[in-house]
Design a binder for these strands. Structure first.
Lengths: 211, 211
DNA sequence: GTCTATAGATTGATAGAC
DNA sequence: GTCTATCAATCTATAGAC
């Protein structure tokens, strides 16, 4: 087990700094000095700052989204085989849990979670578009499964409720890494599992609310 | 009715640009050229870029938060007088509606809504802390009223649910101004009233979900 | 692959004339 | 209050030695 090479050290440092300080507020100098690498090495290994953030995002998102897609398709198939609609809560669990599981998988994984949680709120198109490209097919699939789970709710209402749910998930993701906003004394840093157990019923109840 | 003076033109331009491009990605030159003002005028009128964003936030947030506080206190008082708990949905309406009403009040108000919606997701402390300082007392009061509305739900659960609700609200606010994420064809730009009518039942159902 | 050195542009802030 | 001019620092990116 050799020590991580320059390219990986840069990716790790960029992931942490982009998450902590934001894309535009993080310079290549910040990254290379944190990674103990030379300033020129970023452009040698990645070509540009934009290509770097793109690789930072893709490296983690691709495997997570693969798991999400598999789980969502399995839920869809099982429901069709049984001839009964899938459960909305199961669908959301398939979407959220892989991200939370990843968070516990590595000591520094939480930085990436914060980065992703903020991506949809990024004012600049650079980061947001990279994220959108990766997440869009998963959102489409999630919407499909939710539609099957709640066929009595008009598509337009369902769309907005999914939108609200994504807001809850994003906000929770980027807050799980920094200080909570309010009542910090009754919300010490908890493990993701407990937060997931609280988040899923909230979302499910919101999705299934009477019209 | 004279044309707005330089200071106001700078505030308006800064509000729009900070919302569109983000704080760090907007330069003072961007702002002054949009405001048809001289570069040096920002430092003359405000002192620094940070003091400018601070005034951009405070100018709109202070009156909105005043209305929120009054409405929340009125709900609290009415419930106490009647000897019955307040309604969670009414409390959230008191919190959300003033922001949505403001959105329809002026042609360019929507920029500010996006700016606020993103504030909690700002990685940099500068913007986030300015916003926190303004919003914290309102959050505290909202939490109080919600606690009285749902006394059977443990405080810790209530805290997290409020956190999830704030995520939905923030995400909706900064998305109401740009393109929606998914299924754009079934979600054309709508007026805030309709979104509020969809958002309130979602949040209320989530807050009141069985344990 | 890693380094030094630097180009070329942009940043926030300020000094000083008017 | 508004302007020009500029400073000192910082930025991304690249050229070229090793």
């Amino acid at each position: 087990m050799s020590k991580p090479d320059t390219k990986h050290r840069i990716l790790d440092a960029a992931e942490r700094l982009f998450a902590d300080k934001g894309y535009h507020n993080t310079s290549l100098r910040n990254i290379t000095s944190a990674a103990k690498a030379n300033l020129a090495s970023v452009n040698y290994h990645f070509g540009s700052k934009e290509a770097l953030i793109s690789e930072v995002m893709d490296r983690r998102l691709a495997p997570i989204n693969k798991i999400r897609t598999e789980r969502l398709k399995a839920i869809q198939q099982t429901a069709r085989d049984a001839g009964s609609p899938p459960l909305a809560e199961e669908a959301f669990c398939a979407f959220i849990e892989p991200m939370f599981t990843f968070r516990e998988s590595a000591p520094n994984a939480r930085h990436f979670i914060a980065l992703v949680g903020r991506s949809l709120a990024e004012p600049d198109g650079t980061v947001r578009n990279i994220f959108k490209k990766q997440i869009m097919p998963v959102f489409q699939l999630l919407f499909e499964v939710i539609s099957e789970a709640l066929p009595h709710i008009p598509e337009k209402v369902l769309y907005w409720r999914l939108h609200f749910a994504i807001g809850s998930v994003s906000h929770t993701m980027h807050c799980l890494c920094s200080k909570p906003m309010i009542h910090t004394e009754c919300a010490p840093p908890q493990d993701s599992t407990e937060v997931l157990r609280l988040l899923l019923p909230f979302i499910t109840a919101g999705m299934e609310a009477p019209l």
